[in-house]
């Protein structure tokens, strides 16, 4: 294992770097898109159930199929990283739009009513009261989406762009254990670090929910 690591440091680091970009960029994009969509699901109650169902269907599309298929729709090259980024953004939206809606719906009616009674207008109330109160739920969804993305990127290796996943396919083709193990460990570690980072941010910005 040590020999493999020292002989292939550059390859591993490049794979890791690609993995980070491919996994986390979609989290940012997906989060930005999911916020307004999730809000719509709360603002217009009739939208909520269709929204949940559409998200469910989107999430059930196999990642491999989406990776392969996006080039056909987007006109990108099959080896373009853009396919992975768009696909994972779609998953992130599917996961987070629902979480945002659920988080906002979980805000105590008494809290929003008293905010309204104090003279808050709708948008200001959303930013000052509802979003902060819903934040623990939303951030829990963000953690799940981030961790899922990090593990999903590897599947891209089957079409040639998969960050650490390329270590899996290489090891598989050569019947060689080390790259697979290194890939798995690095992927899990990356997920753990990202997860921890979000937890720390959450502790920092929601001091009231600290136990």
């Amino acid at each position: 294992m040590i020999t493999y690591l020292s002989n292939n440091t550059d390859v591993i680091l490049a794979a890791l770097r690609q993995h980070i970009v491919l996994a986390l960029l979609p989290v940012l994009i997906g989060f930005a898109v999911a916020l307004p969509i999730g809000y719509l699901g709360v603002r217009f109650p009739r939208v909520y159930h269709p929204l949940v169902n559409v998200c469910g269907v989107l999430y059930s599309i196999p990642s491999l199929a989406l990776f392969v298929f996006l080039p056909v729709i987007l006109g990108t090259k099959i080896l373009s990283p853009l396919n992975i980024v768009v696909a994972l953004s779609i998953y992130t939206v599917a996961l987070l739009a629902r979480t945002v809606a659920d988080g906002l719906r979980s805000v105590d009616e008494l809290v929003t009513q008293s905010a309204t009674a104090m003279g808050y207008r709708r948008f200001r109330r959303l930013v000052d009261v509802e979003l902060p109160v819903a934040l623990p739920v939303i951030l829990a969804g963000l953690r799940a989406a981030t961790v899922a993305n990090i593990s999903l990127v590897s599947v891209g290796a089957l079409i040639g762009v998969g960050g650490l996943g390329q270590l899996f396919t290489r090891g598989f083709q050569l019947f060689y254990l080390e790259p697979i193990l290194v890939g798995i460990i690095a992927s899990i570690a990356l997920a753990a670090v990202a997860d921890l980072a979000i937890v720390l941010v959450q502790r920092l910005i929601t001091p009231w929910s600290r136990v």
Partner: peptide
């Protein structure tokens, strides 16, 4: 969720 299924699968096949 953080365990990459493809990696686990290929690991198992290799083993």
């Amino acid at each position: 969720r953080s365990l990459p299924t493809l990696g686990l699968l290929m690991l198992m096949v290799t083993l």
